[in-house]
Amino acid sequence: MEILRVFNNNVVLARDGAGREVILTGRGLGFQARPGRTVDPTLVTRTFIPADGRDPDHLAELLAGIPPEHVQLVGEALAEAGLDARASASPTLVIALADHVSFALRRQRLGVAVEYPVVAEVKNLYAGEYAQARALLAAINARSDEPLPDAEAVALALHLVNAGFASGDLSWTYTMTGVIQQMMDVIGQSYGLELDPGCVSVGRFVTHLRYLFVRIEQHEQLDQQHSPVGGAIRAAYPRAVACAERLASIVELRLGSPLTDDEVSYLALHVARVTETAA
């Protein structure tokens, strides 16, 4: 592999044999290294391949600012928590988690406590990721002299959720979480019901919303003109359609993107399923 840029003694940007730009880490890897030279493979401990169009330079610069021991800590904790497959599929997840954990450890040393206002939403809407985050936090604390508080599981869970989206901006995940909770509240108020977050239909609805937000962000909403499926849904569930149109208004207000008729129809279908189960 050829070195393209040296960020510090431990992080370099290189081009591999397939012509891809990759981020390499390893103690002393960048010491006295120069662009154009060949990478010493014996010094490489981790290889990160940027995905989803992420800027390799930006990721490498971020990684260069994280102590190597914190990157190693997170990598080992991910493996112990059974999340190494997710880390392999999304290398940027390791960088994002290491950056967060490194900052959290510094806060811990300074005695600075942080409260996360979306605790209930994360536990209810992302139960799977929250369980994984708790296991990850336990693995991190087992390897650290300064255990992080339980509340950090919320932030770790949001990073796990965020890894499923094209955007690397965690603020998008925070916004999405708030919008989902608001939509759930509207459904409950419209039907006079209390929705069970653990219900299968609610779980399917949340999954649908997560993929809907991906389509919105990528400007790829479902939009089949005069869709027969959409027409059938609207005819069968008029009350759910009225509720779905309220949900669409929330999306447009919060995310600045109007929903297509097809997206509203599929929202209505999920509203009908959720409310029939809860009734």
Score class of each variant (00 low, 15 high):
residue 111 G to M: 01
residue 176 M to Q: 02
residue 219 H to Q: 13
residue 188 G to C: 01
residue 63 L to V: 08
residue 236 A to K: 13
residue 262 D to L: 04
residue 186 V to W: 00
residue 239 R to W: 02
residue 239 R to L: 13
residue 277 T to M: 09
residue 72 Q to M: 06
residue 54 R to V: 04
residue 27 R to C: 02
residue 146 E to F: 03
residue 179 V to R: 02
residue 1 M to T: 04
residue 138 A to C: 05
residue 255 L to E: 12
residue 232 A to I: 03
residue 255 L to P: 08
residue 258 P to Q: 01
residue 119 V to S: 07
residue 41 P to R: 05
residue 186 V to Q: 13
residue 82 G to M: 10
residue 217 E to H: 14
residue 135 A to D: 15
residue 175 T to H: 05
residue 279 A to N: 14
residue 171 S to K: 13
residue 111 G to Y: 04
residue 167 S to F: 00
residue 129 E to L: 04
residue 119 V to N: 04
residue 204 R to H: 06
residue 184 M to Y: 01
residue 58 H to K: 13
residue 119 V to L: 08
residue 20 R to G: 01
residue 203 G to I: 08
residue 164 G to N: 12
residue 260 T to H: 10
residue 132 Q to H: 15
residue 140 I to L: 15
residue 187 I to H: 08
residue 109 R to N: 03
residue 158 L to I: 07
residue 30 G to W: 00
residue 213 F to M: 12
residue 83 L to M: 12
residue 40 D to Y: 03
residue 67 P to W: 06
residue 2 E to M: 05
residue 272 A to S: 14
residue 183 M to R: 09
residue 133 A to E: 10
residue 13 L to T: 00
residue 181 Q to Y: 00
residue 112 V to H: 09
residue 242 A to T: 14
residue 51 A to K: 15
residue 232 A to Y: 08
residue 64 A to P: 01
residue 33 A to V: 09
residue 279 A to E: 14
residue 51 A to V: 14
residue 79 A to W: 10
residue 126 Y to I: 10
residue 154 V to C: 00
residue 247 L to G: 07
residue 153 A to R: 07
residue 118 V to C: 11
residue 136 L to H: 00
residue 81 A to E: 13
residue 269 L to P: 04
residue 190 S to C: 05
residue 91 P to T: 12
residue 250 I to S: 00
residue 257 S to R: 14
residue 168 G to M: 06
residue 103 F to W: 12
residue 156 L to G: 06
residue 95 I to E: 05
residue 259 L to A: 06
residue 5 R to Q: 15
residue 3 I to D: 01
residue 99 D to P: 01
residue 203 G to M: 02
residue 247 L to K: 10
residue 28 G to P: 11
residue 54 R to G: 01
residue 274 V to T: 12
residue 166 A to W: 06
residue 119 V to K: 10
residue 108 Q to E: 15
residue 135 A to W: 03
residue 126 Y to H: 13
residue 220 E to L: 10
residue 205 F to D: 07
residue 55 D to G: 07
residue 135 A to K: 13
residue 82 G to D: 07
residue 270 H to V: 06
residue 84 D to F: 03
residue 121 E to H: 08
residue 232 A to D: 04
residue 188 G to Y: 01
residue 54 R to N: 03
residue 237 Y to L: 06
residue 259 L to I: 10
residue 92 T to C: 03
residue 241 V to R: 09
residue 113 A to F: 00
residue 237 Y to S: 09
residue 5 R to M: 11
residue 184 M to P: 01
residue 121 E to K: 03
residue 113 A to I: 09
residue 195 L to Q: 00
residue 143 R to K: 15
residue 19 G to V: 10
residue 42 T to G: 02
